[in-house]
Write a protein that binds this DNA or RNA. Structure first.
Lengths: 194, 194
DNA sequence: ATGTATTCTAAGCAGTAGCTTAGATTGAGT
DNA sequence: ACTCAATCTAAGCTACTGCTTAGAATACAT
């Protein structure tokens, strides 16, 4: 067997993710990618086929990344409303520190795409939303069982609300200050705490 | 005095607005603009200086456009909570008809921009948010005066909430169906109606 | 050591980006 | 009817886009 790869595919994919996250799909050139990923264009194309496919793999990576870092507390089997509240108020702190300025890669991409979106990318975006909504549904069900949320809550309805809330959050993190974001969250949560 | 313009500047600006709205700033080429605006590149540059400046004028136009059509009911001097509710439920109907798929030009642009946004464009985006929030503040104050909203409501806090809510709405209009959007709105409004 | 399948380097491809320019065309003021 | 400043046409500028390719470099199996 011949020469071996000089780079870790998963590692350069994570670097690509950050580039797309900061600049967006359209504003990220392959030249910039090779600079930030630290590998040559040839290697990018031989490992990831083309720019679009690299981006799609990036979106998968992003889902994994979000699940393991940002959403880790919400993914616990028994996560409940209090975890969600802590998550949201923790997000305000991220805004204060300027660490949420890039928003959410998936929401940004949703905004960037035409009404006639690329279907392959659209599928990957939807997977992310399904993932997040599943997390939220789980939290609501746990909280009903724990008695923290009224048992006759319409879980589907509230999970749609919270999914939209979090998408809004990722946008206002880019154009509102800490106080405004805190206001948004505190009023939004009045609907859930009994 | 010499030859006169063969086109109406304000009219071609409106056409440019629609192109940017559909495709986003980065994905709109000057070639596409000249096709859709119906005038030559030379005319674009002589009337609007360059692409970025055309876009900035487009954002001004968009604010004017939104105020006169989408937000017309909310801009009435005595607009109140009921007008806001009607507006939001009317928006669900737009989603149902597929007329909200492009989202909001300003929110889309916010998502498209880097953390280190072009400052000239950022200023124009902020003007839009100030405009919308002013509208919302007015509605809240009117409703307090009319007795439809509790007089000890923190107007600033709730206007931040509602501004975020509307930004979220413009995003989910691109990736959620009618039912999901209706859920989002109906839960969101529980906070305001007494 | 040698063979060889794979990786890496770096140059280059056609297509498109934003923008400019020379010259023909226009039409109100005289 | 003529003037002339402004408009429009169409070609072309440089820079950059995503992507490809020929050839040198590599490292495992023999």
């Amino acid at each position: 067997m011949p020469r071996v790869k000089a780079y870790d595919k998963d590692l350069v994919l994570e670097k690509a993710m950050n580039v797309f996250w900061i600049h967006g799909y359209g504003n990220t050139s392959v030249r910039l990618l090779e600079k930030e990923m630290g590998i040559n264009q040839f290697s990018i194309y031989s490992s990831f086929l083309n720019k679009k496919n690299l981006f799609i793999e990036t979106l998968r990576k992003y889902r994994e990344h979000a699940g393991q870092s940002l959403f880790s507390s919400l993914r616990k089997r028994n996560a409940g409303i209090n975890d969600l509240k802590e998550f949201l108020y923790g997000f305000v702190e991220l805004v204060r520190q300027g660490k949420a300025r890039n928003g959410c890669l998936v929401v940004n991409t949703t905004s960037e795409m035409d009404a006639a979106t690329d279907p392959d990318i659209a599928v990957e975006l939807q997977k992310y939303f399904v993932f997040v909504q599943g997390m939220i549904r789980n939290i609501l069900l746990n909280s009903i069982q724990a008695g923290d949320v009224s048992p006759d809550t319409d879980v589907e309805k509230y999970s749609n609300y919270l999914l939209g809330l979090m998408q809004g959050l990722s946008v206002i993190a880019k154009n509102m200050n800490e106080k405004q974001v805190a206001d948004y969250i505190s009023v939004a949560l009045l609907n859930i705490e009994e």
